[in-house]
């Protein structure tokens, strides 16, 4: 069974059909790219997957269970975690606390346990610290554990957002334009990070990206969206040479390499 099954997904805002008839699946431990021109509905698909919006048509199943009608904060219980186009960190909290917030939904100890400092509190908090430190070490960020998240350099902020998402123990990580605003070196580093996520945590990644070097470099499969509908699906090479995709990006047929650069 596929990890994520999206079936005839659609949403309508007033008179605008933002997404229509989108179907795809994502298997275990693969990296999939979601690309398309601006306004194609990529982020809307993310928002549908994470229950920010509720679809007007279709179904979303994670491990065979439908997520329809669930609350936003329940998405992480299904094993879906995301990052945002414009980084959304808890800026005046420390890096450590940002990650610990990711553990929250699996937290067990109650409010009385917290205010009376019962053993459950101490045990679990010690556990959190240890796990958070492990996570930071994996990404080479343990030295900034106590730094305020808002004071980190841009590249590390992106990384921390990914760490926080990983702290929720997802089966599928959704990255919304992780390379936005990055230079070539930073993008290269990001590619390593995403591969690390795949190999170390054995999870799948679905990413929206405009940087074609990154997409072609790490995605095993690509889904192309245009005007809210799926234009093409397939291996990077198939998509790259698909004339319809090229047309969508350039407005007409043209040099296939233009898409890549």
């Amino acid at each position: 069974m596929a990890l994520l099954e999206v079936e005839n997904l659609g949403i309508r805002f007033g008179g605008l059909q933002a997404v229509k008839d989108v179907s795809f699946t994502i298997g275990n431990n693969e990296i999939v790219g979601l690309i398309g021109p601006n306004g194609a509905g990529k982020t809307t698909v993310f928002n549908l997957l994470t229950n920010v919006y509720h679809p007007t048509e279709g179904d979303i199943r994670v491990g065979g269970v439908s997520t329809l009608g669930k609350k936003q904060h329940e998405t992480v219980d299904f094993g879906l975690a995301r990052t945002f186009q414009n980084i959304r960190l808890f800026k005046s909290m420390s890096v450590m606390e940002n990650i610990k917030t990711g553990f929250h939904h699996r937290g067990r100890y109650s409010i009385p346990a917290a205010i009376f400092r019962l053993p459950a509190y101490w045990q679990e908090e010690a556990n959190y610290t240890e796990q958070a430190m492990d996570l930071l070490k994996t990404f080479g960020m343990s030295h900034v554990a106590e730094v305020e998240a808002g004071n980190l350099p841009y590249g590390q902020q992106r990384k921390l957002e990914i760490c926080r998402a990983l702290a929720t123990h997802p089966k599928l990580l959704l990255l919304d334009e992780p390379a936005a605003g990055m230079n070539a070196t930073e993008t290269q580093e990001l590619m390593d990070t995403i591969r690390l996520v795949q190999e170390h945590f054995k999870i799948s990644v679905l990413l929206i990206e405009h940087d074609m070097n990154l997409v072609m470099g790490i995605c095993e499969r690509i889904i192309v969206l245009n005007y809210g509908k799926i234009l093409a699906k397939g291996l990077p090479n198939e998509v790259r040479n698909n004339p319809e995709v090229i047309g969508a990006y350039l407005g007409s047929e043209g040099d296939p390499n233009a898409v890549v650069s």
Binding site: T50, H73, T75, R88, F90, S92, T101, H105, T168
Partner: peptide, 14 residues
Amino acid sequence: SIREDEIASEATGV
């Protein structure tokens, strides 16, 4: 975390 960013907080499972 709600004070810092409500949308991110909800997405993180709060």
